[in-house]
Design a protein around this nucleic acid. Structure first.
Lengths: 253, 253
DNA sequence: AATTTCTGCATTGTTAACAATCTATGTCAA
DNA sequence: TTGACATAGATTGTTAACAATGCAGAAATT
């Protein structure tokens, strides 16, 4: 109650209205209420508005979304099955706090899957797909011009989901969205420098490589991009996580 | 009650005891009861003991597994989020009945992801991984020698999960397991000839290609293997699904 | 006889009360 | 003052009763 009424981290996201058809593909046959909760938390994590280890109390979520406890618990269960939320017995739900090993797994999986995604796209990509990607790049540029940090972060991650969407394959899209969201948590935990999440125009060169039809170049670009992010992490030590800070201040360092 | 007591499709699977450590990787932080239900249904689908559209009534599952309704509903929700089970409002839970389009998506995703998996394995694979794969092949051969149809089907699918496991990456393993299980449903629905699920020794040649370190050969082998299965499907028409048969017999053809 | 409507039963969905566990505050003793 | 301990409050986990919906069989009408 206290946290969320002061600073509500679950605003309606821009794309929640725009492409409603995509939502169906995501999770098949889920009550709308439930889906909204899942989507909002997903978005909030992607935008780094919800930090790892943040407590998600049932009462807070019930009041925030105006639904019963059952819906909230179902949503939390779904989120936990995707590694976004961690359910601790008798303790409650928390935004997941990926271990260094999980971080490795997520980035290895992304490297493999997204390499395949761009490689296939060099073979064939619809004009609609190219248009969507280019317009996405434009949005990113605009956000950077406005210095809109939230949007920059959101769009930067969403770009990779947008790439997956070009395949018209809900399975791939869902997997990539999960991995991108978990990456957001990983960057929040282990990121060192500011630009670790969004190297400026690497996205544009990925598209260029795709439309030029050169598989090798496209692979190199996406791999370079992902490794760039991965290498900016310091998996040895997690930084800037408030709960730890509090513990440091009160206890031993 | 009636169906499951007469013919219980949820036997304890062989690997349920053997490698208990892998289960943890699968779904993080789930109550054991819940996990057992999910795993059993997963296995039953993989072994084609549960056909698409089979009703999974809550009462039946409660009695079968000796747990409360809550656990059952949570398990069903998890299964539905992975496309194994379909929840219809006020109707209950059913083993999923993938559409032709879903079938396409699953096989496209498998083609992409498993290609990446074997390609990376040609670069590097642990001796433990090779041993596990070879011993798996031996199990398959044994099952074929015994003409143990259930085991043949189960091991045939599990082989692909075994390949994924060689990466020591729970994300990849989970995704592949989901896709393999859904493939089992797809084959049950659209499979034409008997051997559509398990071409005899293609698995062995995949391993050979991997250990020989030739990426191209390994890619060709896995792609050939998957396309072989995919091409044996008739996505136009679903066969041998009892509920339809019943409808045909009572109504118009 | 066939089709439609109605009624009773079974199953699922929802809510609320209860039980169990954890957290935090306050008390007491060293 | 510091530590352990106990108690009160809050939060989560579970169960059971209730409501709502769907399904099947019977009755009635054409």
């Amino acid at each position: 109650m206290q946290l969320l009424t002061i600073f509500n981290p679950f605003p309606p996201t821009p794309n929640e209205m725009t492409n409603a058809t995509d939502q169906k593909l995501d999770t098949l046959r889920a009550d709308p209420d439930e889906q909204i909760i899942v989507d909002r938390i997903y978005s909030a994590v992607m935008e780094q508005k919800l930090a790892p280890r943040t407590k998600l109390s049932e009462q807070t979520l019930c009041e925030t979304f105006g639904v019963g406890r059952m819906r909230v618990r179902r949503a939390l269960l779904l989120l936990s099955s995707q590694g976004i939320v961690e359910l601790r017995s008798n303790r409650g739900a928390f935004i997941a706090c990926p271990s260094p090993d999980e971080a490795r797994e997520v980035f290895e999986a992304r490297l493999m899957i997204e390499t395949g995604i761009v490689r296939e796209l060099t073979r064939e990509i619809s004009t609609a797909g190219v248009d969507a990607l280019r317009s996405h790049i434009k949005e990113e540029d605009d956000a950077r011009a406005r210095n809109d940090q939230t949007e920059i972060i959101r769009l930067s991650g969403e770009f990779h989901v947008e790439l997956a969407k070009c395949h018209n394959n809900s399975v791939l899209t869902r997997v990539v969205r999960e991995l991108v969201t978990r990456s957001s948590l990983i960057v929040a935990l282990f990121g060192t420098n500011k630009d670790s999440s969004c190297p400026d125009d690497e996205h544009a060169s990925i598209i260029d490589a795709i439309v030029s039809g050169d598989p090798q170049s496209a692979e190199d670009n996406i791999q370079h991009h992902l490794l760039h992010v991965k290498n900016s992490l310091d998996l040895k030590q997690s930084q800037n996580v408030e709960p730890d800070l509090a513990k440091i201040l009160t206890g031993r360092m």
